[in-house]
């Protein structure tokens, strides 16, 4: 009984066949589960990136502002267009900045399907969750870290960036947008 002292020399009892077979299967499963991860990195294209840099939130904030100035979509008067109070940016393939702050994702991005972008993801205050919906891709935006994700949109349409890491009472109002065409 499991609540009483076991018989002497319990460790010498051999395992039954049923246990041995299951143990072998379970161990193999564990090894396969482990190897699946490097395998996917080598063969497939959906992997959390490994590239990141330490960066001061102020520096990242300024870099995002420069990015918005450089590639902002201008109206006739030369001012940067806004949607939902957020600047709209149409960058060429290459470096793109996504800034999380309480309670706003900026800028609104206009991307091209099939082009590769180096998305620099960070936050300038607390943690935020970078969640692209409805495609359902989720990454963490961490202040002090510039997380570089090499992203190639493979579907076109309208996508929301939902914040899915609790960041304060206005958390649910933090929605940004990506257009892919």
């Amino acid at each position: 009984m499991s609540i009483f002292i076991p018989e002497k020399h319990w460790w010498r009892d051999p395992l039954d066949k049923d246990e041995k077979v299951w143990l072998a299967i379970a161990l193999t499963t564990s090894i396969v589960l482990t190897l699946a991860m490097p395998y996917w990195h080598v063969t497939q294209k959906q992997n959390p990136g490994s590239e990141y840099y330490k960066i001061k939130p102020d520096t990242f904030d300024a870099a995002t502002d420069r990015f918005i100035q450089q590639y902002g979509v201008k109206d006739e008067a030369g001012a940067i267009k806004q949607e939902g109070g957020i600047d709209v940016v149409a960058p060429p393939p290459g470096d793109v900045f996504v800034r999380g702050q309480q309670f706003k994702w900026s800028p609104v991005l206009k991307l091209k399907k099939g082009s590769e972008y180096r998305i620099h993801l960070s936050s300038i205050d607390v943690l935020h969750g970078f969640s692209v919906q409805p495609i359902n891709m989720n990454f963490e935006a961490v202040p002090g870290y510039d997380y570089v994700l090499k992203v190639t949109p493979t579907t076109s349409g309208v996508f929301n960036i939902v914040c899915n890491e609790f960041c304060g009472i206005g958390h649910h109002t933090m929605v940004g947008r990506i257009y892919v065409d």
Partner: peptide, 22 residues
Amino acid sequence: FACLVAFYLLNWKELIGVWNVG
């Protein structure tokens, strides 16, 4: 075990549907 394998494969299949990222 069959359930584990089935759901595991189903999730990889869903993952292929997202954008390329690395």
